[in-house]
Design a protein around this nucleic acid. Structure first.
Lengths: 110, 110
DNA sequence: ATTTATTATCGTATATTTGCGATTAACTAT
DNA sequence: ATAGTTAATCGCAAATATACGATAATAAAT
Protein backbone atom coordinates (compact mmCIF):
# COMPACT_ATOMS: atom_id res chain seq x y z
CA UNK A 1 0.00 0.00 0.00
CA UNK A 2 2.64 2.49 -1.01
CA UNK A 3 1.27 5.98 -1.15
CA UNK A 4 2.63 6.89 -4.52
CA UNK A 5 3.97 10.09 -4.63
CA UNK A 6 6.15 12.49 -6.45
CA UNK A 7 4.48 14.65 -7.92
CA UNK A 8 2.23 16.04 -5.30
CA UNK A 9 0.42 18.97 -6.82
CA UNK A 10 0.73 21.81 -4.42
CA UNK A 11 -1.01 25.05 -5.16
CA UNK A 12 0.94 27.76 -6.93
CA UNK A 13 0.85 29.82 -3.77
CA UNK A 14 2.19 27.03 -1.63
CA UNK A 15 4.98 26.39 -4.11
CA UNK A 16 5.83 30.06 -4.25
CA UNK A 17 5.88 30.52 -0.51
CA UNK A 18 8.03 27.42 -0.05
CA UNK A 19 10.41 28.76 -2.66
CA UNK A 20 10.75 32.11 -0.98
CA UNK A 21 11.10 30.51 2.43
CA UNK A 22 13.80 28.22 1.24
CA UNK A 23 15.74 31.14 -0.19
CA UNK A 24 15.47 32.91 3.16
CA UNK A 25 16.47 29.74 4.96
CA UNK A 26 20.18 30.44 5.20
CA UNK A 27 21.75 33.08 7.45
CA UNK A 28 24.20 34.21 4.79
CA UNK A 29 21.40 34.96 2.38
CA UNK A 30 19.56 36.93 5.03
CA UNK A 31 22.72 38.94 5.64
CA UNK A 32 23.01 39.59 1.92
CA UNK A 33 19.43 40.81 1.72
CA UNK A 34 19.90 42.98 4.78
CA UNK A 35 23.06 44.46 3.31
CA UNK A 36 21.30 44.97 0.02
CA UNK A 37 18.51 46.82 1.75
CA UNK A 38 20.87 49.12 3.60
CA UNK A 39 22.82 49.97 0.49
CA UNK A 40 19.88 49.76 -1.91
CA UNK A 41 22.26 48.01 -4.27
CA UNK A 42 25.64 46.37 -4.21
CA UNK A 43 28.22 44.53 -6.23
CA UNK A 44 29.36 40.99 -5.63
CA UNK A 45 32.73 42.30 -4.53
CA UNK A 46 31.19 44.38 -1.75
CA UNK A 47 29.83 41.22 -0.21
CA UNK A 48 33.11 39.40 -0.68
CA UNK A 49 34.75 42.15 1.36
CA UNK A 50 32.17 41.89 4.09
CA UNK A 51 31.54 38.18 4.42
CA UNK A 52 34.09 35.58 5.50
CA UNK A 53 33.28 33.33 2.60
CA UNK A 54 34.90 32.55 -0.72
CA UNK A 55 33.86 34.58 -3.75
CA UNK A 56 32.45 31.48 -5.40
CA UNK A 57 30.32 30.71 -2.38
CA UNK A 58 28.87 34.19 -2.29
CA UNK A 59 28.22 34.07 -6.00
CA UNK A 60 26.30 30.87 -5.42
CA UNK A 61 24.12 32.42 -2.74
CA UNK A 62 23.42 35.33 -5.03
CA UNK A 63 22.41 32.90 -7.73
CA UNK A 64 19.93 31.24 -5.41
CA UNK A 65 18.41 34.52 -4.38
CA UNK A 66 18.15 35.48 -8.02
CA UNK A 67 16.58 32.19 -9.04
CA UNK A 68 14.08 32.57 -6.24
CA UNK A 69 13.27 35.96 -7.73
CA UNK A 70 14.22 37.97 -4.67
CA UNK A 71 17.02 39.92 -6.29
CA UNK A 72 18.02 41.17 -9.73
CA UNK A 73 21.47 41.39 -11.25
CA UNK A 74 22.40 44.03 -13.76
CA UNK A 75 25.61 43.94 -15.79
CA UNK A 76 27.85 46.91 -15.10
CA UNK A 77 31.05 45.53 -16.60
CA UNK A 78 33.16 44.26 -15.24
CA UNK A 79 30.90 44.25 -12.21
CA UNK A 80 27.42 43.03 -11.55
CA UNK A 81 25.05 45.27 -9.68
CA UNK A 82 22.52 43.53 -7.49
CA UNK A 83 19.37 44.86 -5.98
CA UNK A 84 16.19 43.57 -4.48
CA UNK A 85 13.42 42.68 -6.90
CA UNK A 86 10.70 44.90 -5.55
CA UNK A 87 7.87 43.16 -7.34
CA UNK A 88 8.66 39.72 -5.99
CA UNK A 89 9.63 41.11 -2.64
CA UNK A 90 6.12 42.50 -2.31
CA UNK A 91 4.73 39.21 -3.49
CA UNK A 92 6.71 37.38 -0.83
CA UNK A 93 5.60 39.90 1.75
CA UNK A 94 1.96 39.26 0.90
CA UNK A 95 2.38 35.51 0.98
CA UNK A 96 4.01 35.60 4.39
CA UNK A 97 1.27 37.93 5.59
CA UNK A 98 -1.38 35.39 4.75
CA UNK A 99 0.47 32.79 6.76
CA UNK A 100 0.95 34.99 9.75
CA UNK A 101 -2.47 36.52 9.63
CA UNK A 102 -4.31 36.64 12.90
CA UNK A 103 -6.94 34.22 11.77
CA UNK A 104 -4.53 31.78 10.24
CA UNK A 105 -3.71 30.31 13.55
CA UNK A 106 -5.00 32.16 16.56
CA UNK A 107 -6.56 29.33 18.44
CA UNK A 108 -6.83 28.14 21.94
CA UNK A 109 -5.14 24.86 21.69
CA UNK A 110 -3.57 21.82 23.32
CA UNK B 1 44.10 33.49 0.83
CA UNK B 2 41.34 31.24 2.03
CA UNK B 3 38.70 33.14 3.88
CA UNK B 4 38.44 30.85 6.83
CA UNK B 5 35.20 30.25 7.80
CA UNK B 6 32.88 28.02 9.74
CA UNK B 7 31.75 29.42 12.28
CA UNK B 8 30.42 32.67 11.11
CA UNK B 9 28.71 34.30 14.03
CA UNK B 10 25.35 35.42 12.85
CA UNK B 11 23.12 37.33 15.19
CA UNK B 12 20.57 35.40 17.21
CA UNK B 13 17.83 37.02 15.19
CA UNK B 14 19.36 36.07 11.89
CA UNK B 15 19.82 32.51 13.06
CA UNK B 16 16.26 32.36 14.31
CA UNK B 17 14.78 33.77 11.14
CA UNK B 18 16.82 31.41 8.99
CA UNK B 19 15.64 28.53 11.13
CA UNK B 20 12.00 29.44 10.77
CA UNK B 21 12.39 30.09 7.06
CA UNK B 22 14.01 26.77 6.50
CA UNK B 23 11.19 25.01 8.29
CA UNK B 24 8.70 26.80 6.05
CA UNK B 25 10.79 25.97 3.01
CA UNK B 26 8.99 22.79 2.01
CA UNK B 27 5.49 22.66 0.53
CA UNK B 28 4.47 19.68 2.61
CA UNK B 29 5.30 21.49 5.82
CA UNK B 30 3.28 24.50 4.70
CA UNK B 31 0.34 22.21 4.02
CA UNK B 32 0.72 20.71 7.46
CA UNK B 33 0.72 24.12 9.09
CA UNK B 34 -2.27 25.20 7.06
CA UNK B 35 -4.14 22.05 8.01
CA UNK B 36 -3.13 22.56 11.61
CA UNK B 37 -4.49 26.09 11.54
CA UNK B 38 -7.82 25.05 10.09
CA UNK B 39 -8.30 22.30 12.62
CA UNK B 40 -6.54 24.05 15.50
CA UNK B 41 -5.00 20.70 16.28
CA UNK B 42 -4.54 17.33 14.66
CA UNK B 43 -3.05 13.89 15.04
CA UNK B 44 -0.35 12.42 12.88
CA UNK B 45 -2.86 10.00 11.43
CA UNK B 46 -5.07 12.80 10.17
CA UNK B 47 -2.22 14.01 8.04
CA UNK B 48 -1.41 10.51 6.86
CA UNK B 49 -4.99 10.28 5.61
CA UNK B 50 -4.75 13.56 3.81
CA UNK B 51 -1.28 13.58 2.32
CA UNK B 52 0.02 11.17 -0.33
CA UNK B 53 3.16 10.44 1.65
CA UNK B 54 4.36 7.61 3.81
CA UNK B 55 3.63 7.81 7.53
CA UNK B 56 7.32 7.93 8.29
CA UNK B 57 7.83 10.84 5.95
CA UNK B 58 5.06 12.82 7.55
CA UNK B 59 6.41 12.03 10.98
CA UNK B 60 9.75 13.40 9.86
CA UNK B 61 8.23 16.65 8.64
CA UNK B 62 6.42 16.99 11.95
CA UNK B 63 9.70 16.48 13.73
CA UNK B 64 11.31 19.28 11.77
CA UNK B 65 8.48 21.65 12.49
CA UNK B 66 8.70 20.70 16.14
CA UNK B 67 12.45 21.17 16.28
CA UNK B 68 12.09 24.55 14.65
CA UNK B 69 9.65 25.37 17.43
CA UNK B 70 6.68 26.01 15.19
CA UNK B 71 4.53 23.21 16.57
CA UNK B 72 4.07 21.27 19.78
CA UNK B 73 3.23 17.63 20.25
CA UNK B 74 1.26 16.34 23.17
CA UNK B 75 0.97 12.66 24.01
CA UNK B 76 -2.61 11.41 23.88
CA UNK B 77 -1.88 7.69 23.78
CA UNK B 78 -1.74 6.05 21.49
CA UNK B 79 -1.91 9.24 19.46
CA UNK B 80 0.05 12.43 19.42
CA UNK B 81 -1.84 15.68 19.26
CA UNK B 82 -0.08 18.45 17.41
CA UNK B 83 -0.77 22.12 17.45
CA UNK B 84 0.93 25.33 16.53
CA UNK B 85 3.25 26.78 19.12
CA UNK B 86 1.67 30.17 19.51
CA UNK B 87 4.60 31.76 21.27
CA UNK B 88 7.12 30.91 18.58
CA UNK B 89 4.61 31.51 15.87
CA UNK B 90 4.29 35.08 17.05
CA UNK B 91 8.04 35.32 17.29
CA UNK B 92 8.35 34.15 13.70
CA UNK B 93 5.65 36.58 12.65
CA UNK B 94 7.57 39.46 14.20
CA UNK B 95 10.85 38.43 12.64
CA UNK B 96 9.32 38.20 9.19
CA UNK B 97 7.66 41.55 9.74
CA UNK B 98 11.01 43.21 10.31
CA UNK B 99 12.27 41.77 7.06
CA UNK B 100 9.25 42.82 5.08
CA UNK B 101 8.91 46.19 6.72
CA UNK B 102 8.42 49.11 4.40
CA UNK B 103 11.74 50.63 5.25
CA UNK B 104 13.66 47.42 5.02
CA UNK B 105 13.86 47.63 1.30
CA UNK B 106 11.67 50.20 -0.34
CA UNK B 107 14.21 51.81 -2.62
CA UNK B 108 14.34 53.10 -6.09
CA UNK B 109 16.92 50.85 -7.54
CA UNK B 110 18.75 49.44 -10.52
C1' DA C 1 0.63 -11.33 29.35
C1' DT C 2 -1.12 -10.43 24.59
C1' DT C 3 -2.97 -7.88 21.29
C1' DT C 4 -4.19 -3.58 19.02
C1' DA C 5 -3.57 1.13 17.52
C1' DT C 6 -0.70 4.77 16.69
C1' DT C 7 3.48 7.11 15.96
C1' DA C 8 8.52 7.59 16.25
C1' DT C 9 12.86 5.91 14.87
C1' DC C 10 16.19 3.16 12.17
C1' DG C 11 18.49 2.02 8.02
C1' DT C 12 19.01 2.99 3.41
C1' DA C 13 19.08 5.31 -1.12
C1' DT C 14 19.06 9.37 -3.67
C1' DA C 15 19.10 14.25 -4.31
C1' DT C 16 20.22 18.71 -2.87
C1' DT C 17 22.95 22.12 -0.42
C1' DT C 18 27.00 24.22 1.02
C1' DG C 19 31.54 25.11 0.84
C1' DC C 20 36.13 25.40 -1.50
C1' DG C 21 39.82 26.33 -5.21
C1' DA C 22 40.58 26.63 -10.05
C1' DT C 23 39.07 27.96 -14.36
C1' DT C 24 36.43 30.41 -17.66
C1' DA C 25 33.84 34.27 -19.39
C1' DA C 26 32.90 39.13 -20.12
C1' DC C 27 34.05 43.41 -20.75
C1' DT C 28 37.73 47.58 -20.31
C1' DA C 29 41.55 49.70 -21.06
C1' DT C 30 45.98 49.83 -22.76
C1' DA D 1 46.22 41.93 -29.51
C1' DT D 2 47.21 41.87 -24.52
C1' DA D 3 46.51 42.53 -19.96
C1' DG D 4 43.57 43.53 -16.02
C1' DT D 5 39.36 43.26 -13.26
C1' DT D 6 35.36 41.19 -11.80
C1' DA D 7 32.12 37.64 -11.34
C1' DA D 8 30.12 33.21 -12.87
C1' DT D 9 30.78 28.44 -13.49
C1' DC D 10 33.04 23.87 -13.02
C1' DG D 11 34.52 20.01 -10.38
C1' DC D 12 34.82 18.14 -6.16
C1' DA D 13 33.92 16.83 -1.18
C1' DA D 14 31.18 16.76 2.77
C1' DA D 15 27.02 17.49 4.96
C1' DT D 16 21.94 17.73 5.01
C1' DA D 17 17.38 16.78 3.33
C1' DT D 18 13.83 13.91 1.51
C1' DA D 19 11.67 9.83 0.68
C1' DC D 20 10.74 4.93 1.61
C1' DG D 21 9.80 0.35 4.18
C1' DA D 22 10.66 -2.06 8.30
C1' DT D 23 11.07 -2.06 13.06
C1' DA D 24 10.60 -0.40 17.72
C1' DA D 25 8.20 2.06 21.25
C1' DT D 26 4.09 3.46 23.91
C1' DA D 27 0.02 3.06 26.07
C1' DA D 28 -4.85 0.88 26.19
C1' DA D 29 -7.70 -2.70 26.27
C1' DT D 30 -8.67 -7.37 26.47
Amino acid sequence: MSKTLQQIDYSKETEALARFSKALGHPTRLIILKYLSNQSYCYTGDLVDVLPLAQSTISQHLKELKEAGLIDGELKPPKVKYCINQKNWKKASKLFSTIFDEDFTDFSCC
